[in-house]
Structures are given as structure tokens and as C-alpha cells.
Amino acid sequence: GYDPNALYCICRQPHNNRFMICCDRCEEWFHGDCVGISEARGRLLERNGEDYICPNCTI
């Protein structure tokens, strides 16, 4: 089920109804503003069928 207190992202904070994006490599969720991806950019990636790779996986 959905846990509203689950911690995500590099900031280890809950979802808090903020835009989030999922890394296509590790499948962890990240707040867009923490990883520099706007909601519009996230939608563009999705539309173009491009993967989002998080900072942890791009090292």
C-alpha cells in the first residue's frame, strides 16, 4: 500500500505532493526539484520515451 511517511530521494523526505520522477535504473523516486528536473521536463522525457537516470546512477 501507499505509505505517506515513506522516505524518498536524496533528501530522504516524504512525497509531500511534490512532483517526483522515478530513476529507470535503480527505480528509486526523486523529488524533481531536488534533482533539477522540472515537471515539464519530466513529462517531455516520458513523451519521448527517454529514461531518467538519477544522480546516484550517473556517477
Rank of each mutant, 00 (worst) to 15 (best):
M20K: 09
C26P: 02
E27D: 10
P55H: 09
H15Q: 06
I21H: 03
N16G: 14
F30T: 03
I37A: 06
I59V: 15
Q13G: 04
D33K: 09
G32T: 13
I10Q: 05
C22G: 12
S38D: 15
A40H: 05
N56S: 13
G1M: 06
C54H: 04
L7V: 09
R47G: 13
Y2P: 13
I37R: 09
Y52I: 05
N56L: 04
N56G: 12
H15W: 09
Y2S: 13
F19Y: 12
I59T: 13
T58K: 13
E28H: 07
N5A: 02
M20N: 12
F19G: 04
H31I: 01
H31W: 02
Y2R: 15
C26G: 01
M20R: 08
V35T: 07
I10K: 08
A6L: 03
P55A: 13
R43Y: 08
C54T: 01
R43F: 03
F30H: 10
I21T: 05
R12K: 14
D51P: 03
C11F: 01
Q13I: 07
A40L: 11
T58D: 14
T58P: 10
G32C: 09
E27G: 07
R25N: 13
I59Q: 06
P4Q: 09
C26H: 01
P4D: 15
R25E: 14
E28I: 04
C23R: 01
C57Y: 00
A40E: 15
V35C: 07
C34T: 01
E50A: 10
A40S: 09
D51R: 10
C9E: 01
E39L: 08
I10C: 03
Y8T: 15
C54V: 01
I37M: 05
I53K: 15
C34R: 01
L44S: 11
E46M: 08
E50N: 09
Y8I: 14
D51N: 05
E28P: 01
P14F: 07
E28C: 09
T58M: 07
F19C: 05
E28L: 08
D24P: 13
E27Y: 10
E46S: 08
G1D: 14
I37S: 06
I10Y: 02
C26R: 00
D24I: 06
E27W: 07
R12L: 07
D33Y: 14
M20C: 04
D24S: 07
C23S: 02
R12D: 07
C54I: 00
N56M: 06
N17M: 09
F19K: 05
E39I: 04
Y8S: 14
H15F: 02
C11G: 00
R41Y: 08
C34H: 03
N17H: 10
R43W: 06
D51W: 01
S38T: 11
C34E: 02
N16D: 08
Q13R: 07
R43V: 05
N16C: 04
R43K: 12
C9L: 01
P14G: 11
N16Y: 03
E28S: 07
R47K: 15
V35N: 05
C57T: 02
C54K: 02
N16T: 12
G1T: 15
E28V: 10
C54L: 00
A40D: 09
N16F: 05
L45V: 11
A40R: 05
L44C: 09
I37C: 07
G49C: 04
C22Q: 12
N56D: 10
R47L: 13
L45K: 05
D3T: 11
H15K: 06
L44G: 13
F19V: 05
Y52E: 05
C22K: 12
C57A: 00
L7E: 11
P55T: 13
E27A: 06
G36C: 06
W29I: 15
G36N: 09
S38P: 10
C57M: 00
E46T: 13
D51H: 05
E46Y: 12
L45A: 03
M20S: 10
N16L: 08
R18V: 11
L45Q: 15
Y2D: 09
I37V: 06
E39H: 04
L45P: 10
R41P: 14
N16I: 07
G42Y: 12
Y52V: 06
A6Q: 07
E39M: 04
T58G: 10
G36Y: 08
N16W: 08
P14L: 11
I21K: 09
Y2E: 15
H15M: 14
P55C: 07
G42S: 08
P4K: 15
Y2V: 07
N17S: 07
L44A: 11
R43I: 13
E39A: 04
S38Q: 04
C54D: 00
G42C: 12
I21P: 00
I10G: 04
I53M: 15
C11Y: 00
L45Y: 08
G49R: 08
L45C: 08
P4R: 12
C11M: 01
C34A: 01
C57Q: 00
C57D: 02
W29V: 15
C22I: 12
G36L: 06
R25H: 09
